[in-house]
Nucleic acid binder design. Structure first.
Lengths: 194, 194
DNA sequence: CTCTGGCTATGACGATCGTTATAGCCTATC
DNA sequence: GATAGGCTATAACGATCGTCATAGCCAGAG
């Protein structure tokens, strides 16, 4: 039953990531975090003994890895292809949710970590941001962009997309994302000289 | 005593903005929101009868107007000067707080508005973002940047700075902001042809 | 079949949530 | 110095918070 066990645990994580990206971490109760995937409250503390912070950290890592995999795949066809995939991913998230869902990593990053105990969640968020940024920076480097421009551009892309997703939610409009997409594509294409 | 009244009310708003940019809205209790400026809980509902949402909305507008005024002032010397002032403002916020404070407008924008009643706070957040974006876009237009580039660039700047502030908080490092600043400055300077 | 152990179900703990109500203070005006 | 009203102080409301404890269920190993 190791299989079924993992499945339950995984479903809690997936549900937690979905709820956090909508309501934030402080806005999501452990009961809702569990209930969003149909799991009972008791299971949450069985699988995540350190409580809310641990579950949030795992949800952030899950969402982060999901994006990282897509990013890595599409970057094989070059930085512009990777950028487009990254943008498309967030466009779907925002539009499909009716402008109610954002990025769970950002949601955790803008909240205060607990004063007592390890701030697992925000550390996980920082690691995810770093992972995305490195993937993009490496791809830019491989396509002829020198340092420090490659690093700076990669950070700019991650930051601007995260910020734009929040803008779209506030406005209830996808236009900010499309506007930023247009400028980023020009910027990256120019940087790699194509 | 209209003066003293306004002063108390204003101090609550200022304190609320400071707390929200650190803890988020859901992470800040009404008691803390009041107590952060030394005001009693009762005063909160006296000045803001519609409760937490109203106070949050006024805090967002206060912080937004503060930034708007600085932005408008510095943009008189051109888009690059305005950009630099905008970046410096956020740099101070993040560094001076020891990477514990971010942007209260973004904090509200990434949270779910209440299901019942008017979502005053997130509407205020959207209006603030629009105000900033229009100021910058207008300045770019006055310096020869045609549409839609002016609008797109302005949105890119706002979004990327908001996102970067969150990145800096997560990492406990100011470098993302400096990296983004470098790229944005090149981008804007190039766009206006200087 | 028996037994073991992972998982669920249930309920409770004290603390704290947003909000409301009301009684009293305190200053400005006449 | 009395009066009025803006503001504060205090207590309480039901609901819900994160967390923990424990009893029971149920599949797989012996």
């Amino acid at each position: 039953m190791t299989r079924s066990t993992s499945a339950s645990r995984q479903r809690i994580i997936v549900g937690a990531a979905d709820l956090i990206r909508r309501r934030g971490l402080a806005g999501s109760t452990i009961r809702d975090l569990a209930g969003h995937s149909g799991a009972p409250l008791g299971s949450t503390y069985h699988y995540f003994p350190r409580g809310k912070q641990q579950l949030a950290a795992e949800a952030v890592r899950f969402a982060g890895d999901l994006v990282s995999r897509t990013l890595e795949q599409e970057l094989a066809a070059g930085p512009v292809a990777g950028l487009r995939a990254f943008l498309t991913l967030w466009r779907q998230t925002v539009v499909d949710s009716g402008y109610r869902a954002g990025c769970p990593v950002l949601a955790v990053a803008v909240e205060e970590p607990p004063a007592d105990g390890d701030p697992e969640a925000i550390i996980a968020a920082a690691e995810v941001f770093t992972a995305w940024q490195r993937l993009l920076a490496a791809s830019l480097g491989e396509h002829g962009v020198a340092e420090p421009a490659a690093t700076q551009l990669a950070t700019l892309v991650i930051a601007s997309v995260e910020g734009t997703v929040a803008l779209c939610r506030a406005h209830g409009d996808i236009r900010p994302l499309d506007d930023v997409a247009a400028q980023l594509e020009i910027l990256i294409a120019t940087a790699i000289g194509t």
